[in-house]
Amino acid sequence: MREVTRRGLALSLVLSGVAGYVDAIGFIDTGGFFVSFMSGNSTQAGVDILEDGLAASLLPLALVAAFVAGVVMGAIIAGDGRRRAWAVAASASVVALSACLAAIAPTGPARFWMLAFAMGALNTLYLSDGRARVAITYATGTLVSLGLALASLLTGRSGSAWVRPLLLWGSLAGGAVIGAAAHRLGSGAALLLAAIVLALAAVGLAASRRGRRERSNG
């Protein structure tokens, strides 16, 4: 997180907000499952297998599989993480296109799978050396970073490291609130708005990467 520039932080906050927004809509539409929070789906699948049998766990397990597939696709496009602007734009465009297809698809498993795929790919937009520099959709990792930063604050090692993870978590939680409110307009329309924001973010990410490369070459 500390490796990300201020402009990159702003974009990551937007993306995290969209992730919370989309997850809230998916949670409502699926009746209690997630399209970006795979820990919750994994736990729910385990409970469903024990209480209701394997068939009841198919949806949360399918969401996990779709999420992983999105990560795989994003990582393939990303390569080794040293991406040119066009590769960043391509990765973000995959996310935006998946969200757009989900928005126009009827409410049902196909829509949920596409959303989970998009959220998985979203986590590959800030890759470096094969790892995600920013935890876009998983609040647990962000809260661990926040806790560690608060420990550094209390022990005098760092006075400001807690700010970025707190902002990232706040963006995700705030996006969920907005997503729940937007769902009242209809999940298709609400998801189309998310797709538009993601498309704009794709342009911003590409511009950010291009500008950084030009400064380093200059």
Rank of each mutant, 00 (worst) to 15 (best):
V197Q: 03
S42A: 13
G26M: 04
R82E: 15
A75C: 11
F33D: 03
G40Q: 09
A19Q: 00
G218Y: 04
L154T: 05
S16M: 00
L172W: 05
F34I: 06
A87D: 07
L125K: 03
A139S: 10
I178R: 00
L125E: 01
G147A: 15
I136G: 02
A180F: 08
R164L: 05
S57T: 07
R82W: 11
G26A: 10
G159V: 09
R212G: 08
V177Y: 00
D48P: 04
S57P: 00
F37D: 06
D80M: 06
R209C: 04
T124E: 10
R184I: 09
F67V: 12
L192C: 12
A78L: 03
A103P: 02
A102C: 14
A118M: 11
V94W: 01
V14A: 04
R7Q: 11
S39L: 14
S160P: 03
S16E: 00
E3P: 11
L50Y: 05
M114A: 13
L193R: 15
A10D: 01
G8S: 12
D129M: 14
S171M: 02
T107A: 15
S98C: 13
M119C: 14
P165S: 13
L143I: 08
G40L: 10
L15G: 03
S152P: 14
A56V: 10
A116S: 15
